[in-house]
């Protein structure tokens, strides 16, 4: 299932009385092949999250469309799942009931729901914590619950919006490996937004660099190294350096450096 992002632009009303608008994204064209792990990086405020929300159907673009296998994606599309930065778990639901949420929406009988969810808790290393509330879980566990809640619906494309940004670096490394192992087993297409270039280089087969606002595609890098990757190998460092340079040469960054 190939995903095509066709000529997406988005502007927001800036000042309603003056009628001025701010451009967030400008003519984004992308093609994401099935089963690929693709990251989007760019300076802060470049519209990475907006792009992801447009793909998920949470925000409508001013122009353009997103298609999966030739069909437009609509909000709540079963083929697309999203994982959020702050986990977005329902704090009043236990771990297992968070994971079951999507199945509940599908009106699956309770016993079947529970059975499926228990498989996920076991496979995601969450066994024994089924009835804990999100507030009783560590950051890494919360994010695993959030990923399980999305994957239990068996989407073809998983959108991830800086999913590991609020984790400490140790947990983040663990979660990166965990995500790679799941992806390796299941083979969903992953579109991963991050501001962390190291993370993008470690995880993805393709890295899309966006410009500062309005976000445009600067370059698409292919990272053709086998997994598991060595975070400190020369090839990894070379591509990292190149992307970091591309990002820091964006106007917003230049402005910060030379006031």
């Amino acid at each position: 299932m190939c995903m095509k992002i066709n000529n997406i632009s988005k502007t927001y009303a800036d000042n309603e009385s003056l009628g001025t608008r701010i451009a967030i994204l400008e003519n984004i064209n992308l093609r994401v092949d099935s089963g690929r792990f693709v990251s989007i990086v760019g300076p802060s405020g470049c519209g990475k999250t907006t792009l992801l929300k447009i793909i998920a159907g949470l925000i409508s673009p001013c122009q353009g469309a997103v298609q999966l296998q030739g069909q437009n994606i609509r909000l709540g599309d079963e083929r697309v799942g999203m994982v959020f930065q702050e986990f977005a778990l329902f704090p009043w639901r236990s771990l297992i009931r968070n994971i079951e949420f999507g199945l509940e929406i599908k009106r699956l009988p309770r016993s079947q729901r529970r059975k499926r969810a228990l498989e996920y808790t076991a496979n995601f290393g969450l066994g024994g914590f089924e009835h804990r509330l999100p507030q009783e879980l560590s950051g890494g566990m919360k994010q695993r619950v959030a990923i399980a809640r999305t994957l239990i619906n068996q989407p073809n494309v998983v959108l991830m919006d800086e999913p590991f940004a609020s984790l400490d670096s140790q947990t983040r490394n663990e979660m990166q490996d965990f995500l790679l192992s799941i992806w390796y087993d299941r083979g969903e297409t992953i579109l991963f937004v991050t501001h962390n270039v190291d993370e993008a280089v470690y995880l993805s087969q393709q890295i899309i660099v966006l410009s500062s606002r309005p976000g445009r595609v600067v370059e698409i890098h292919d990272v053709n190294y086998p997994y598991p990757r060595d975070r400190t190998s020369p090839e990894i460092n070379r591509i990292r350096k190149k992307i970091l340079q591309q990002i820091s040469s964006q106007p917003e960054y230049a402005k910060f450096q030379k006031p």
């Binding site: 159907g57 949470l58 599309d77 977005a88 329902f90 639901r93």
Partner: peptide
């Protein structure tokens, strides 16, 4: 209620009624 919870529910294909009953009501309890 954190709007991200509503976004999460919507990406999981929740209808407006689902959101009312499963997100807004328990969140506002």
């Amino acid at each position: 209620i954190d709007p991200i919870l509503i976004d999460a529910a919507r990406t999981l294909n929740a209808s407006s009624l689902d959101i009312f009953i499963k997100v807004l009501l328990p969140g506002a309890i």
